[in-house]
Design a binder for these strands. Structure first.
Length: 265
DNA sequence: AGAAATGTTCGGCA
DNA sequence: GTGCCGAACATTTC
């Protein structure tokens, strides 16, 4: 679930709770979250260091330490941060203790996320073959790289190598707001449609961030015109009431309104 | 009880 | 190289 808007709010949360604090302890509760790296190496790089800055690229979050290294976080499908006083929350995989303030838990029930350390933030982004962040990409590059070629439009929006940060849920949301069918071909879009899609992509992501994506607040009170909250069986289009349709492709489910997002010719 | 959900990586196919 | 597909990974919820 965590996509660009969620991770942006995790970044802001990390700034509020951990920035300028010194890490006194790192406890790895489940080694699998390190994807083969050793808990000792993580501890050695992080313990005694101060968190000085944060950065987000697509769905990845990095936290800069005062030794020049970066803590890296990916949230997989169920990852999130939580602070606590006494007992760490269930499914805590890594626990960070600070000189002052409450400890921080990296929680990830399904273990698809990851925590690590890297020497170089830029090299990290390159190693993961990530394209520009979805809120940084220019309209020109969006048009040339994301929509270049001839491919399924929804798949193009989710291609992290071309544009980083959009996953299954937000690609559905963007296409719903743009009133474009997920199975349109990228080369079928005209200039005007491309411009509009680019603008709506930014609006959706920004609105989701401001509405608190990734927090309980968002789950309880998602924007009323968003499709996201309706992505479940038996739901209808929040705009016209038509029953939503799904289309499965490569293991992902696309949700869309057959009336607002008519099938390509 | 079995499928579905989600993101990334990887192997296979045209 | 391009584009698409499904499997694998782990876990809980329907």
């Amino acid at each position: 679930m965590p996509e660009l808007p969620d991770v942006e709010n995790f970044r802001r949360f990390l700034e509020r709770t951990a920035l300028r604090r010194t890490v006194t302890g790192v406890s790895v509760c489940d080694d699998r979250i390190l994807h083969g790296d050793s808990p000792a190496a993580l501890r050695k790089a992080v313990e005694g260091r101060r968190l000085e800055r944060t950065r987000r690229h697509g769905k990845h979050l990095l936290a800069g330490l005062d030794n020049g290294r970066w803590l890296t976080f990916h949230f997989g499908m169920t990852g999130r941060f939580e602070t606590f006083r006494d007992e760490p929350p269930r499914s805590t995989r890594v626990r960070f203790d600070f000189r002052e303030g409450d400890p921080l838990a990296f929680v990830d029930q399904r273990l698809f996320g990851g925590v690590g350390v890297t020497e170089n933030a830029r090299a990290f982004v390159e190693a993961h073959e990530l394209g520009p962040d979805a809120l940084e990409i220019s309209e020109d590059e969006f048009s040339r790289t994301v929509l270049g070629g001839s491919r399924n439009l929804k798949a193009a929006l989710m291609d992290q190598a071309k544009i980083a940060g959009i996953g299954n849920e937000y690609s559905d949301e963007i296409l719903f707001q743009a009133r474009l069918h997920p199975e349109m071909r990228t080369n079928a879009l005209d200039r005007e449609q491309i411009s509009r899609l680019y603008r709506i992509m930014r609006e959706v992501l920004e609105k989701a961030i401001e509405a608190g994506a990734g927090t309980r607040e968002f789950d309880e009170n998602p924007p009323a015109d968003f499709l996201i909250a309706h992505r479940r069986k038996g739901a209808s289009c929040p705009r016209c009431g038509t029953p939503l349709q799904t289309k499965k492709s490569a293991g992902r489910t696309a949700w869309f309104c057959p009336r607002c997002q008519p099938a390509p010719a």
